[in-house]
Design a protein around this nucleic acid. Structure first.
Lengths: 136, 136
DNA sequence: ATAGCTGCAAATGCTTTGCAAGGCC
DNA sequence: GGCCTTGCAAAGCATTTGCAGCTAT
């Protein structure tokens, strides 16, 4: 492929985000391949390993901008880490404790057959499900 | 009732925790009534409002001791707050965003009819479900 | 007496922010 | 040029920890 940034570039342009060097580097890692589940720290190490220098503060800012733009979803796992998921469809997660790996569940893997009644004047804004696995 | 600490005292004794003034005050608030969902901060304000003085560090330590003893369950909601739940049965939660209220769901409110296959050598250690409600 | 508990204050770890310098259009 | 973006360092916040003094048994 001779246009290695095309996908990343398009993402940014589509959402009115100025394609700076830092945003391109991050978008390339996040969107030019399979779905990813990253923490700010992992992404920081990864992007700086490629030679591009992006500060941690900018990683955080950019992850939140991408999330606001609808390019990412935040996943709450535990109180120490925020994961960002490039799969923005409605889906659930499985977390492997020892490996610290977060993965998607398909709609076949987990089925919720009944949800609580929604009170007047309220709406469901999210249904967060995380299955925690550990070594037996 | 002329033995206002009986229930709290029993909890502590049953789990081999020395019934100190601080632990009794916290156990009384947590276990002498309906199920509660508290954060360390809320519990701190509440217990100090009763006249008992308990430091925030001790609140945290005690909440974790109670959790390890099986008297409480930790509930992960978002990355800013850890809630502790006195309902230790297997159940799910609903969170009302504007009111910052966390409540239990019964097994009728939410039904999970299928779980993912468990890989060899692994086991499910938790199934965390939180329905987020907001004003519509 | 002594092992365990508490409180304070300092440390930690992740995340956010203020602001001056730099980059994109 | 002008506005947006970045990077650094400092601040923030919830939580944890070290340690000296206290307390239940």
């Amino acid at each position: 492929m001779n246009r290695p940034y095309s996908k990343a570039l398009k993402c940014l342009q589509d959402f009115g985000l100025r394609p700076t060097r830092q945003r391109l580097a991050l978008a390339k890692i996040l969107f030019d391949g399979d779905d990813r589940h990253v923490t700010a720290e992992v992404l920081h190490n990864e992007v700086n390993g490629t030679g591009a220098k992006v500060s941690l503060a900018t990683i955080y800012n950019t992850l939140h901008q991408f999330t606001e733009a609808g390019l990412l979803k935040e996943v709450i796992l535990d109180s120490n880490r925020t994961y960002f998921d490039t799969n923005i469809s409605d889906h659930h997660h499985i977390f492997f404790k020892e490996d610290e790996i977060l993965a998607d569940l398909t709609s076949e893997d987990l089925v919720i057959s009944s949800l609580p009644e929604v009170p007047e004047g309220k709406k469901i804004s999210a249904v967060n499900v995380v299955i925690h696995m550990e070594n037996s």
